[in-house]
Amino acid sequence: MTERLLDIRDLRTWFNTDDGMVRAVDGVSLHVNRGETLAVVGESGSGKTVTARSVLKLIDMPPGRFAGGEILWRGRDLIPASNSEIDKIRAREIAMIFQEPMTALNPVYTVGDQIAEPLRAHENLSRRAALARAAELMRLVQIPDPERRVRDYPHQFSGGMRQRVVIAIAIACGPQLLIADEPTTALDVTIQAQILDLLNDMKARFGMAIMLITHAMGVVAENADRVVVMYAGKVVEAAPVEELFANPRHPYTQGLIRAIPRVDAKAQHRTRLAQIPGTVPSLINPPAGCRFAARCTFATDACVAAEPVLKPVGPDHTVACIL
């Protein structure tokens, strides 16, 4: 039996705003096994980023608050944990990288110092030893000429190189889980492929699990082991990647897969793309019943009447749809 590193159960992260309570994450359950890549896929407003940030408690409170649920990290609930306990887990056990490599680095410190910082904080290395490790890590993430570049500042790096620096910082203390929030969205396709290859390489080398937050189904297909599809603050489907693409059960998942134009399909030019009508519902007063019902072509009265729960439909495959 594989070990569940991270087990999120019925998490609810809500935000108090002037307009009302935003239920950004509203009853999300998912888990990450040791050494696997779990992709959390969804559109804007699906709650995928808030879920990821909740794990490391990177939510501003207020306006945010945990309205329920558990975040079990290797069996221990992080929600009641104190800040100093979370600090011990951050970087050393769970690391996180973000979408914008431009803003994730502090412009007034050299990249070497920034990579060395977690090492000095968590592993009590001297500055000299930490900088030597920083150069090693830069070599590991394939930044050319690391001994020299360790003294450079972030603005001297291109976007792709900065994301490599961010990854080097994240893996510096050898975390068991890396949460990557849209790590390639801001990058060009050729650079995107390099970064994803690098992440997969790090995963293979260190046996680190990755929670990959993304909106791109293509990225999911090529990098994930398992997939969780989120919509309007809820999980609508979860399955191993091949199963999900071969046999998507939720109408939203089906729509997402079909809505993408594909370069590999023949004679598909100018055939209409499958589109999902409408837009994501407001999370302030989410519709009763299934939140996708208003955009779903198969919706019936029963969908609006009761909220569907995740049910198993195959090995490791669950779906929240009554149909």
């Binding site: 935000f15 804007s44 709650g47 980023t49």
Partner: peptide, 10 residues
């Protein structure tokens, strides 16, 4: 891309 979630949720 602007698909970042952030404050959009609100």
């Amino acid at each position: 891309s602007l698909i970042a979630e952030g404050p959009e949720v609100f």
